[in-house]
Each structure stands twice: as structure tokens, then as C-alpha cells.
Design a binder for these strands. Structure first.
Lengths: 148, 148
DNA sequence: AACAATACTTGCATTTTGCAAGTAAATAAA
DNA sequence: TTTATTTACTTGCAAAATGCAAGTATTGTT
């Protein structure tokens, strides 16, 4: 079957579910968006608000409020940059780091379970293919502009 | 050893963008969720509300309201079942069918563009891998049901 | 006939979202 | 140096999305 849209439709829904189901850690209820924010802060080195918002393609105002929530939950710390006083640098608190790591573990556990339904060869092929796909998407010129 | 979570994190984000950018068709502004609803109604044969809500793993009350919106937009028609008067059968209006088809075309165009960055062999491998992955997810006990 | 189960719908109350509009700081121009 | 512009956010709405509780109507079951 060559209908790509069908494949992506199902995949998208499943990814959504996967991300939804992963994120209850030790009393904290983390939304999908919030888990993505934590992930990116963890990955990047004391990034600014702009950087993360742009990476996640989020509206900066929505992002600002999400960060406020995460700061209230004591998962994220906002430090004013000494270089540029307009900029807020983001980092995870100890708790935030713990939550991010926990989510990472459960996600990888989920994914391992999923991949356990494939044999070793298929597993490697799929992983390599997803990397290829990621690469292709990053090269795409129409990625973030509306198509008609 | 590749980090699956990283791969999925990026893929999820990109898929989200893809779905977000797809959905402005001839004056209609369709949200991602709505496009998924249209897609499923189109695919299934006069399904009930429950069926689609369950397929998309949506809360039935949220779904009910989304359908009300789509009915107001004259994209979806709700017909009471003659078999069971509690049931509403869903179908696309002519306009709805047009919108669904347009979105389908845009999505496929986008995906073709993405895949154009791969060679023929990679393309086939990736498609086949995504199908494998879908299959594995459908077998998974930890997520992704009841999609099929 | 009485009760439970199903298929929705409506009432909140909360959360999420994004466009305007605002503040403060850095940079460019006059 | 002063003024204007840009940048990095924050707040004020208002609209949309979400989900639990509680409702209505219909069907299925003792």
C-alpha cells in the first residue's frame, strides 16, 4: 500500500497517545507539551526562552505561561542572563531533572516494549529508517509553511 | 546504541507541525483534531459517534462538541440510526468530502516532498519500516490502542 | 415492570491557546 | 548623545479545547 497519509495519520495518533500516557511522575502531572519543554531544556545548555520556544515551534506567549507553570511546580528555574538582561536562561531544578529522567526512562521502556514485537533485523531497519525520515524532514522546504 | 526517545521526540514534534500546517482549505480553518475526525469519518462507513471517538481515543464529550462544530460548519452530517435511536451516524457532506480530500492531497504533497530527499531504496525502506512500526504499536500492550 | 447499561448531550470549571498591547533592555541611526 | 528601532519577554483579553459530573433518551436484561 502506497498511501503515505494513511500511515502518517495512524502514526501521528499513536505518537500522541504514547506521549500522553507517559507523563505522570511521582505526584506530578506533566502534560505532553510540558514534557517536551523539560526534554529540550535538559538537552540544551542553559537555553533562553526564545530558543526552546523556537525549537518546539511554540508561540512565545503560550510558552511564557507554560514556563511560569513549570517554575511554580519547581521543575524549572529561570535565571536572568548577565550578558543580556532581557534574556531569561532556563534550567531544570533537581526535581525537574528527576522528572525529566523518569519520563525518559518510561518512554524508552514503552518504546522497548513496542520494538519487542519486531525481530532484531526489523528493529535496526526501523530505527535507521526513522533517522532517515528525520533527516528528510529537516531538509524539507515546505515543513513549516502552509501548503494549499 | 541509539536513543529511541530522542528520535521519537523529534518525530513527534515534526508530525505535530505537519498536521498543524495542513489544514487551511478554501476559507475553512480546520484544527488538527478536526482534520483527524474528518479523515476517520471518510474512511469508515457511516460510523457512530462512539466508533470515531474510540478510534481517535478522544473523550466522548469533547468529541460530541467537536462534531457539533463540524455540523455547524456544514462539513459533517449526523443521521439518527433507524436500528438504534440512541445512535448518531456520521457522514461527510459534499463540502466535508471536498475539505477532507483537499487535506489529503496537501498531506500527500508534503510527504512526497519529504521523501524526495531520499533515494528510491531508502524511500521504500522507510515506508516499509513505518508499516512495521505501526504493526508493532498495534500489538503493544502499553499504548496506542484502540487505533488499528 | 423494574433496573441496569448504552449512546449520547449539557453544565460547569479548568487549561490551553494566540493575537494585541505593554515593559524593559539592547542596538542602530541621527 | 539623543532618538528610534529591534529584541526578549510578559500581561490582557477572548476564544477554543478539555474532562468530570450529571442529565436525557433509548435499549437490553432480569
Amino acid at each position: 500500500m502506497e498511501n503515505k497519509r494513511e500511515i502518517f495519520h495512524v502514526l501521528t495518533r499513536r505518537f500522541g497517545l504514547l506521549n500522553k500516557n507517559c507523563c505522570s511522575v511521582g505526584g506530578f502531572d506533566i502534560s505532553t507539551v510540558q514534557s517536551h519543554i523539560l526534554y529540550e531544556i535538559d538537552k540544551q545548555n542553559t537555553p533562553s526562552m526564545q530558543q526552546i520556544a523556537e525549537t518546539l515551534a511554540m508561540d512565545i506567549t503560550t510558552f511564557s505561561r507554560q514556563i511560569q507553570t513549570l517554575v511554580k511546580m519547581e521543575l524549572v528555574k529561570k535565571t536572568p542572563s548577565s550578558q543580556d538582561k532581557r534574556v531569561s536562561l532556563l534550567s531544570l531544578t533537581t526535581q525537574g531533572k528527576f522528572v525529566a529522567t523518569s519520563i525518559d526512562h518510561s518512554m524508552n521502556a514503552y518504546l522497548d516494549e513496542v520494538f519487542s514485537h519486531l525481530n532484531e533485523f526489523e528493529r535496526e531497519t526501523v530505527i535507521r529508517s526513522l533517522q532517515l525520515l528525520n533527516g528528510a524532514m529537516s531538509k524539507s522546504s515546505v515543513c513549516c509553511t502552509p501548503l494549499y
